[in-house]
Computed example of a mutant assay.
Amino acid sequence: MDLLSSIALYFVLWWLCLFIALPIGVQSSHEAGEHVEAGNEPGAPTRPKLLIKMGIATILAFVLLYLVRLGLSSEWIKNYWS
Rank of each mutant, 00 (worst) to 15 (best):
M1L: 11
M1W: 09
M1H: 12
M1C: 08
D2Q: 05
L3S: 09
L4K: 14
L4A: 08
L4H: 08
S5R: 03
S5E: 07
S5W: 04
S6F: 05
S6K: 14
A8F: 08
A8K: 08
A8T: 08
L9G: 06
L9D: 04
Y10F: 13
Y10A: 00
F11K: 09
F11V: 07
F11T: 11
V12L: 11
V12C: 05
V12E: 03
V12N: 05
V12T: 06
W14M: 02
W14A: 02
W14P: 00
W15T: 07
C17Q: 12
C17P: 02
C17I: 11
C17Y: 01
L18A: 11
L18M: 09
F19S: 10
F19A: 11
F19K: 10
F19Y: 13
I20Y: 15
L22G: 08
P23T: 10
P23R: 09
P23Q: 08
G25Q: 08
G25Y: 07
V26I: 14
V26P: 01
Q27H: 07
S28E: 04
S28H: 00
S28G: 03
S29W: 08
S29F: 14
S29H: 13
E31L: 00
A32N: 03
G33C: 01
E34T: 04
H35A: 06
E37P: 05
G39P: 01
G39N: 05
E41G: 11
P42I: 00
P42E: 00
P42S: 05
G43C: 04
G43R: 03
G43D: 09
A44D: 03
A44F: 04
A44M: 00
P45F: 04
T46N: 00
T46L: 03
R47L: 06
R47P: 01
P48S: 03
P48T: 01
L50K: 08
L51A: 15
L51Y: 15
I52F: 15
I52H: 15
I52P: 05
K53P: 09
G55N: 09
G55F: 12
G55M: 03
I56M: 14
A57E: 06
A57K: 03
T58A: 12
I59W: 05
I59G: 10
I59F: 12
I59A: 13
I59H: 02
I59L: 10
L60W: 08
L60C: 10
L60E: 06
A61K: 01
A61E: 02
F62W: 10
V63L: 14
L65T: 03
L65N: 06
Y66L: 15
Y66G: 11
V68E: 04
R69L: 14
R69M: 13
L70Q: 09
L70I: 09
L70C: 07
G71M: 02
L72R: 11
S73L: 01
S73P: 00
S73Y: 00
E75R: 10
W76F: 14
W76R: 12
I77P: 02
K78D: 02
W81I: 15
W81G: 03
W81T: 14
S82W: 12
S82D: 12
S82F: 12
